[in-house]
């Protein structure tokens, strides 16, 4: 008996325009399963922000999504520069995004705060120079 649906995505760090594809794919599956629209919206916002962060700050990474009967877990893992001060990164408006990225509309420092707002659990593991692992859970 499979009681968990596992989805794996490679998030390309070189291609800005493809950021958001993984979350769109997840959304499509959740829709087919008749998942509550509000849950779908929360998952897509949180995952989209996380995906964008991997592309902008960490040169890409991988996304693993597990759908259980009572929760959806999203794990985003990258081998980027890591986050030196997680509490600081979590504060609204904090951003190290370069100007080039800001001109595209990113870098308001709202990504992580939104990921926290829209999920039930947000956990960040990060080591400077090694990478970042973000785990998010949305209870369904």
């Amino acid at each position: 008996m499979a009681d968990v649906l596992k989805l794996h995505f490679d998030v390309d760090g070189d291609d800005f325009t493809s950021a958001g594809e993984a979350s769109a794919d997840v959304k499509k599956r959740l829709r087919l399963m008749g998942c509550d629209p509000e849950i779908i919206r929360r998952v897509s916002i949180a995952m989209y922000e996380g995906e964008i962060n991997m592309v902008i700050h960490a040169g890409g990474g991988v996304a693993d999504v597990s759908v259980y009967s009572d929760k959806i877990e999203i794990v985003l893992e990258d081998k980027g520069p890591g986050i030196p001060d997680i509490a600081l990164a979590m504060s609204e408006g904090f951003s190290t995004a370069p100007d080039t990225v800001r001109s595209l509309g990113f870098g308001a420092g709202m990504g992580l705060p939104n990921m926290k707002r829209y999920t039930d659990v947000l956990h960040i593991d990060s080591k400077v120079g090694e990478g970042t692992k973000v785990t998010m859970i949305v209870n369904t």
């Binding site: 009681d3 649906l5 599956r29 399963m33 008749g34 259980y68």
Partner: peptide, 16 residues
Amino acid sequence: FSPDEKLTLQQMTEIE
């Protein structure tokens, strides 16, 4: 709009 029968977790896993 209830497009098709909702897929169960099990079915979705089989589809993947």
